[in-house]
Nucleic acid binder design. Structure first.
Lengths: 194, 194
DNA sequence: ACCTGAACACCGTTCAAGT
DNA sequence: ACCTGAACACCGTTCAAGT
């Protein structure tokens, strides 16, 4: 939930700085949702009602700002999967809902796709802690599915980032081709003998 | 094979203009292979040994230059699939080799991924003629595979662009995760009853 | 301590001057 | 007809001056 750098003690910020940081993040969410990766820093500053310098004071680079949004998305995704684990009794349906969540999430947040690509590439990069946590939860989910015999025996959590990355890019491609894509993909994850 | 605009009569170019155009394309191939989408026009001009203005005379925009490379790639891909159709007797292996070609091709040419995304999105865009030709060849290939009972009955050529688009993004993500991804994907395309 | 916004750097694109 | 490269526009980033 904390938006401070991991492993670094949160610096005490002046009250107005805290408010500005929040306004910048809020503005960035809107700007990135609307314009994707080519959202402009000047625009973020304008929406937040601050000078560009303030944006850069809180986030040293556009990339860093995008990553902060990704961090939020990770938290939400982790919460979602945790929710599935104790609310969705059907292990296959739970897996299916993970993929649907991934697809739905792409529409409003394009920086997220870049993060998924990082995971798929195996370079944990920053957000390593969150990536591990998400993978651990997904492994639990898969364990249930394997035990129920509804997925191929050899499917493990570390296979998933690449699958999500692929799905993300198909969703980004536009149109509704991703639905058919997901159908083929999910069918292919079932155990070979049916 | 022609690199002129489709449906527009090829203008007669002065001999030096023809040479320059070829030099620019050659330079662009190298620049894009090395730096991906953020290759610089100035760099392309330098490699080609011409002024930037000349690059812009032949290709009105960086996007247009990237598209010219994509056009070449389309031609090569079409030739490759055509080759498969009369050299590869095993219909499953032929399909497999299409995907492997797609993956291999990503390493050296990142603009290609954008074109695949266009196809996946269903927006034929420019290159429509080439897209249709490629799809027609792939449909022939799939027809053979379906007849031999080695792929799911309902798999059609228009399903493929999304699959290629997904694979492309996983390859771009780096690492070798794409091999496992491709394994899962291809297994999933086999007929359900084995 | 933190904020502002003019100034700088970089790169895509244009165009006046050349051949 | 085509080429050149200085100049322009745009946007990410910095920093001197303010509060």
């Amino acid at each position: 939930m904390s938006t401070a750098e991991p492993t670094i003690i949160t610096k005490r910020l002046r009250a107005d700085a805290v408010r500005n940081r929040a306004k910048v993040l809020e503005a960035a969410r809107a700007a990135f949702a609307e314009h994707g990766a080519e959202a402009q820093m000047e625009d973020v500053a304008r929406r937040a009602g601050v000078g560009v310098g303030t944006v850069y004071r809180h986030f040293p680079t556009k990339q860093a700002l995008a990553e902060a949004l990704v961090e939020e998305r990770f938290d939400r995704t982790i919460a979602f999967v945790r929710g599935l684990l104790d609310e969705e009794p059907d292990p296959w349906r739970a897996l299916e809902r993970c993929f649907e969540y991934c697809a739905a999430t792409q529409a409003t947040d394009r920086a997220w796709a870049a993060a998924l690509a990082l995971m798929a590439g195996g370079t944990m990069g920053p957000r390593e802690h969150q990536m591990r946590e998400l993978l651990a939860l997904e492994e639990q989910l898969l364990a249930g599915a394997r035990a129920a015999g509804v997925v191929r025996e050899d499917l493990v959590a570390t296979d998933l980032p690449a699958l999500f990355c692929g799905l993300a890019s198909v969703v980004q491609a536009g149109g509704d081709a991703w639905r058919r894509y997901l159908e083929l993909l999910l069918d292919g994850l079932r155990p070979p003998a049916r």
